[in-house]
Amino acid sequence: MKTQLTLFLSLLVFSLSAQIPEGYYETTAGLDGEELKAELHEIINDHVVYTYTSSNTDTWDILKQTDKDPEDGSYVIGFYSGFKMDASEEYNSGNGWNREHVWAKSRGSLGTNRGPGTDVHNLRAADISTNSARNNRNFDEATVQYIDESGQYQGETESYTSSSDWIWEPRDEVKGDVARILFYMATRYEGTSGEPDLELREELLSDDSNDPYHARLSVLLEWHEADPVDEIERERNDVIYSFQENRNPFIDHPEFVGLIWGGEEADDMVCCTWAAAKGLASIGFRL
């Protein structure tokens, strides 16, 4: 009973604070597994696409809003490093910052092509040298702290890597963010309309693999549960929605992760069906 009440209250508080359009997830009622994943794909598919770099609004412009320093909007925060970086510099011939593809752009040959390569849900501000160190490494638990010793922004980070395995562990503050971004990408891109079919897997990929997979699924599930959605992540989702007109469902409804990929959340959700959730509409619960 305590677990049921805790889940109910957390869902209620979250639904009241997030700016989810009325009825956005209504068609997911009663679904789980591949059926839920397929329905979420239909909801978030065909978003408004922006170019990587343009004289008009581009991904630089959007990231200056989504990844800005909450204390000073003239800076953006490095996703893996936590470094404060001058937002106005952009790349600046290697002296500024750049745009990290959390789902590595080589995994499925996304590149910087309009669409999967410029989807801002997958892009984060990063300092150039830390971004280079992450490369296309798999996400997993690691042991060697990454210390950035080159480029415009330098110093100790709270991210980790490995001298033997092709892996990267982001700082604790963004581990859940990483997981939910990858869950989004594996749902948004299902091989339709000539797009790649992205999937999460357990096996680690080599650095030269262009297969449309990313790892490690079990670790991402752990990070999702250990680092819950926070207000910064919710606000970022709202800003991207104002441009792309699609949302990351796993920020709006973190319980979708357990319903699709399993994990501890799936056990909690047994006691809280979507039929019951629909009955909460009168007190603010949004599907």
Rank of each mutant, 00 (worst) to 15 (best):
R107N: 03
I62H: 01
T51R: 15
R286F: 08
T273G: 10
L12F: 08
P212K: 00
C272S: 14
S282H: 15
T130A: 08
Q152Y: 13
F14V: 13
G111R: 02
R137I: 02
D61R: 02
R247W: 02
I147P: 06
V174P: 00
C271N: 11
E231H: 10
S93D: 11
L259D: 09
E202Q: 10
G108R: 07
N92S: 08
E89M: 12
N98Y: 00
Q65G: 08
G176R: 02
V102M: 06
I128C: 05
A87Y: 02
E265A: 09
V174M: 02
K37S: 09
C272N: 15
L7Y: 04
K64V: 08
I260G: 06
S74Q: 13
K105R: 10
A18K: 13
V219W: 09
Q145A: 06
R114D: 14
E225P: 06
V120C: 10
L110T: 00
A186P: 00
E231W: 12
A133C: 09
G279M: 08
I44S: 03
S10K: 15
V120W: 05
W274E: 11
I167P: 03
D46W: 06
T57M: 05
L63I: 09
D86I: 07
H101R: 04
H253Y: 12
D61T: 08
P212H: 00
R171T: 00
V144E: 09
S150Y: 15
E202S: 09
T57S: 01
D67L: 01
D86V: 11
H121R: 00
D119G: 04
V120R: 01
K68Q: 15
S164Y: 11
S109Q: 07
S54R: 09
S54P: 02
F14Q: 14
N113D: 14
Y50N: 05
T161Q: 15
S88V: 06
L205P: 04
R236L: 06
S206A: 10
I240N: 03
G108C: 00
Y25I: 01
A275C: 14
Y241D: 02
E169Q: 09
G73F: 07
V49R: 06
L11S: 08
E89P: 13
L36S: 05
A29P: 04
T27G: 09
E264M: 07
S132M: 12
A133I: 15
D252C: 01
E158L: 15
S193A: 13
A133H: 15
D197P: 05
S206N: 10
E199D: 12
N210Q: 14
G30S: 03
D211G: 09
E245G: 10
G108M: 01
Y75L: 08
Y146L: 14
T28H: 04
R107A: 00
V229Y: 07
E195D: 15
K278Q: 13
F256P: 07
N210T: 13
E255P: 07
P228C: 04
S162D: 03
L220P: 01
Y189R: 03
V120Y: 00
A281E: 08
E141N: 14
S15L: 04
I43M: 05
G94Q: 01
E203K: 13
Y50F: 06
N95Q: 11
R234F: 05
T161Y: 10
I251H: 04
